[in-house]
Design a protein around this nucleic acid. Structure first.
Lengths: 190, 190
DNA sequence: ACCTGAACACCGTTCAAGT
DNA sequence: ACCTGAACACCGTTCAAGT
């Protein structure tokens, strides 16, 4: 609030004429930013699943550009036209892939959540790079030096826990969620 | 920091002898809290998949108990023995279900991320209940009154976007991710 | 080695007073 | 209706000085 007010050469109090609180401000900025998501990716050629993943990648990239926003997007979702257009595009692709509505509604949530959370995670690292590197190397060290008799599965999986680029890992996650959503009926057996 | 210091009848500065910053403090508290996750659920009777979901539910419940912590857990993961034990238990169940190591490593990430993000989302709502209710009803209203010709898929899916309890929705997400992870090889075709 | 008070540099939000 | 300054009630972190 104070930073934005300064940018606008006014006092922070003045902003409260236009916005109720910081959460609302964040949601408004995000809604605006969502205008830069490339919706044309949904209508390109190729497999519906690949187009959906391209669209989700575009959404993730947009969030990556604004660290603090990604974090608040996890909590306060926007509801403007740009957000609706993104939701519509995702639902349309899931429909094209033959996913029943009930499952598509849930898949939408999980896909956006994973994309948003990944951006939030990564952007936090950007803000404090040295600390993040230290923490990661500490975790890698811990997991490597882990006692194979106490933690046999961690030892067995080993390097796989960290292998692959973030992009590959996120791409796999999208694929897995889409595949799983297709195969998982909504009224399950328990 | 200041609140914890007050609780301990000391100044905030004193805490920096034991902890480098707030992120480290949060990670330490979370690591401690993870000791209350019920790992016995992994060794109970029944389907490995149901046991895995019970374990993930237990993890989610623990995070629900501490709102602020869930949010920071998305960014700074702990690396203590309780965290390792949880990771080991999840990997063991995925192994029991016949999931290859490479896929299990990625599935672990996605499952914990979804659980953590869900707790973070929900806990933020707890902190400002009235604002959250308003926001949700505004979103429901928006999605209901949406122009069916501009957003046909949103209109078609309709109530499914909000149906089901949070528990059911999260349970479905876990199921879908596990199913998808089993069916999605790591080196994909693109 | 551990603790302290005080200070620095920030936040979001409210409110009476102005135009 | 919109804007302002000032204040309130917070933060995390640092640092010189104490024990």
């Amino acid at each position: 609030m104070r930073r934005l007010a300064q940018e606008l050469d006014t006092g922070a109090a003045s902003l409260y004429v236009y916005v109720a609180n910081t959460a609302e401000l964040h949601a408004a900025i995000l809604e605006d930013l969502l205008g830069t998501v490339d919706l044309k990716l949904a209508k390109a050629e190729g497999d519906w699943q690949d187009r959906l993943i391209a669209l989700l990648d575009s959404y993730t990239t947009v969030l990556f550009q604004n660290p603090a926003l990604a974090r608040s997007a996890l909590i306060a979702r926007p509801s403007g036209p740009n957000y609706l257009a993104l939701v519509e595009a995702i639902l349309a692709l899931l429909h094209e892939g033959g996913m029943p509505n009930g499952q598509a509604a849930l898949a939408l949530d999980v896909l956006l959540q994973v994309a948003t959370a990944t951006a939030a995670e990564q952007s936090a690292r950007d803000e404090n790079e040295s600390a993040a590197e230290e923490e990661l190397s500490a975790l890698v060290e811990t997991l490597h030096s882990v006692d194979a008799s106490s933690y046999p599965r961690i030892a067995a999986v080993g390097d796989d826990l960290f292998s692959g680029t973030p992009e590959e890992r996120l791409g796999w996650a999208f694929h897995a969620i889409i595949n799983g959503a297709l195969a998982t009926p909504r009224v399950s057996e328990h």
